[in-house]
Structure formats: structure tokens, C-alpha cells
């Protein structure tokens, strides 16, 4: 069974403000962006008001190349949110982007019994509707 995105009326939907909203806004344009410290260059995710490495508040946004690795995965059977109940069991992954940032996501076109730690993956910005685009991945 492969993962399919829940319907727009069912999916739990980010309702972000501030820097979080910039993250989701960039995805609507097809880009996965992270905050980067403008002083020392350290990336961080989720967005934060200060660099944990050097303490600078100077922040810029950088677009990820979208390449990474399956750092971990699980196959979820139950319980789960109503939006996902009709597709259990489904896979969820933690991807480590090559830039060093971790995100929770799902793999497209990957049966749950083929999920593997260490697989190379590439970003697939996946549109749900005008408001929401998810950063999903596909095996490279």
C-alpha cells in the first residue's frame, strides 16, 4: 500500500503565523525553505527567533536542494487521526535533508514493506489545495 494525501476537507491543516507562515508560504511556490543564521550560517527548523549556535538574531531564508536520506520510518496501523484512518497501514518517515535539517514526512510511490533507513529521497512539493502544499518525498 502506498501513501496518498488525505482529502483537503479532512487533512489536519497548519494555521501558522510569523516565521512558520513563511515556511508554508514558500511551499505553495514549490520551495522547501529553512531559516539560516545570517551571521554563522547554521540552519534551523522549525523557525526560531535566534540562532542556537551563535546567538545572532539576524536571519535569512535558504531554499533546500530537496535531497536527503530516510533517517527513520514507521508503518502506522492504529490509532491515528480521522484523516488517515482509511489508509492504514501507511508509512511515515523522518528525512534528513543534505543541509542537515530533519523533517517529518511521507514517501510517495513507496509500498510500506519497501521503506528502508538510508534510502536517498528527493522533495516532491505536493499540492493539497490553494492554501496547502506538503513537502513530501520520493525515492531518488
Amino acid at each position: 500500500m502506498t501513501f496518498s494525501v488525505p482529502s483537503p476537507d479532512a487533512i489536519p491543516r497548519p494555521d501558522p503565523s510569523g516565521a512558520d507562515a513563511e515556511f508554508w508560504s514558500a511551499l505553495r511556490d514549490g520551495e522547501l525553505r529553512f531559516e539560516r543564521c545570517a551571521a554563522c550560517g547554521t540552519l534551523r527548523h522549525p523557525p526560531r527567533p535566534v540562532c542556537a549556535h551563535c546567538g545572532s538574531r539576524a536571519t535569512e531564508w535558504v531554499t533546500s536542494a530537496g535531497s536527503g536520506e530516510v533517517w527513520s520510518f514507521t508503518v502506522i496501523h492504529a490509532p491515528t487521526l480521522p484523516a488517515f484512518i482509511d489508509q492504514v497501514p501507511y508509512g511515515a518517515v523522518v528525512v534528513r535533508l543534505d543541509e542537515g535539517v530533519f523533517v517529518v514526512s511521507n514517501l510517495l510511490d513507496c509500498p510500506v514493506d519497501e521503506l528502508t533507513v538510508g534510502d536517498r529521497v528527493e522533495l516532491v512539493p505536493t499540492r493539497v489545495d490553494d492554501e496547502l502544499t506538503l513537502p513530501l518525498f520520493r525515492r531518488a
Binding site: P12, W24, P46, A92
Partner: peptide, 28 residues
């Protein structure tokens, strides 16, 4: 259904219950 906090980074991907999160931690 509207996620303003840390849940926005997990719930849209069907990762919501502690079991899901712990499973990812254990599988690594």
C-alpha cells in the same frame, strides 16, 4: 483541524500519537 503549534510539523503527515513518534525514534 487547525494547527498553530508544534503539531503543524507532524500532524499533516499522519504522525500524531506518541506511538508514532516513539516508533520513529526506535526505528532509527
Amino acid at each position: 483541524s487547525r494547527l498553530r503549534d508544534f503539531r503543524q510539523w507532524h500532524h499533516p503527515f499522519g504522525v500524531a500519537a506518541p506511538a508514532h513518534e516513539m516508533a520513529l525514534i526506535g526505528r532509527r
